Computed example of a mutant assay.
Amino acid sequence: MPERAVHQVANRQPQAASASGHHALRQAFSSFATGVTVVTVCDTLGRPRGMTANSFTSVSLAPPLILICVATQAPIWPAFAGAPTFAVNVLAAGQRELSQRFARPADDKFAGIGWQHGELGVPLIDGAAAHLECRRVREIEAGDHMILLGEVVHFAHSPAPPLVFHRGAYAALAQ
């Protein structure tokens, strides 16, 4: 009978997931490398709004569904709360500055950058590796966040490599 390989996580330090362990839990979450997106919406006055997010995932191909998570205490939440549509802009490897711009508070994060309104009227950022324009299908309360389920109505993509985030830093994919 062949030997079974047993793999252990190096320096594993089990911890309970508690309110006092937020920092450690955040470090554990950061072990998962993610793509970087800027999720965009138009507010009730029609102004473009956006935020950097890595809490995005595909859910289903039939129907084409994705989900994003938005903190309900975030200043941008009211724009998402009332929006019937939104877009996910998957950032390309060279768009680190955009990721950082949309991660920080600012009055007009779109000032001086290239973008356009998509088919659903949502902001699409120029040069992104992919755009997913979504019609909001459902929202689910989840702790201090709201999960927004969206049906992809229009999309586009390019061969550009994505921007990746891992352990609190940007990373490049080996090609």
Rank of each mutant, 00 (worst) to 15 (best):
A103T: 08
E139D: 14
V122F: 08
R136T: 14
G114K: 07
R136F: 01
V90E: 04
S158M: 06
V152S: 05
A111R: 12
H117A: 15
R96G: 10
A160R: 15
F165Y: 15
P84R: 11
V137F: 00
A160G: 05
G94W: 06
D144I: 03
V164A: 11
G94K: 02
G127C: 10
H145W: 10
E133R: 05
H145C: 09
G143S: 06
R96M: 08
G127M: 09
F110L: 05
V152E: 03
H145I: 12
P105K: 10
S158H: 10
H117G: 11
G94H: 13
L132N: 01
L148D: 05
G112K: 02
Q116I: 08
A87D: 08
A106R: 11
V137C: 06
P105D: 09
L149Q: 04
T85C: 14
A160C: 06
G112Q: 04
L132A: 07
L148K: 00
V88Y: 10
R138W: 13
V90S: 03
R135I: 12
L124C: 12
H154Y: 14
E151Q: 13
P159T: 12
A106S: 15
C134G: 05
E141M: 02
G150V: 11
L91D: 07
D126E: 14
P162N: 07
D108Q: 07
I147S: 01
G127V: 09
E133Q: 14
I147Y: 00
E97K: 02
M146C: 15
P161H: 11
V164T: 14
A103K: 06
A156F: 11
S99A: 15
P162T: 13
A87G: 14
H157I: 01
F102Q: 01
V90F: 13
V137I: 13
R104E: 11
G150T: 08
I140C: 05
D107L: 07
G118Y: 07
A142S: 15
S158P: 02
Q100A: 13
L148Q: 04
G150E: 03
H166E: 11
G150K: 05
P123A: 06
A160L: 14
R96F: 04
A103I: 08
A111F: 09
F165H: 09
H166T: 07
L148R: 00
I140P: 00
D107F: 01
A87Y: 01
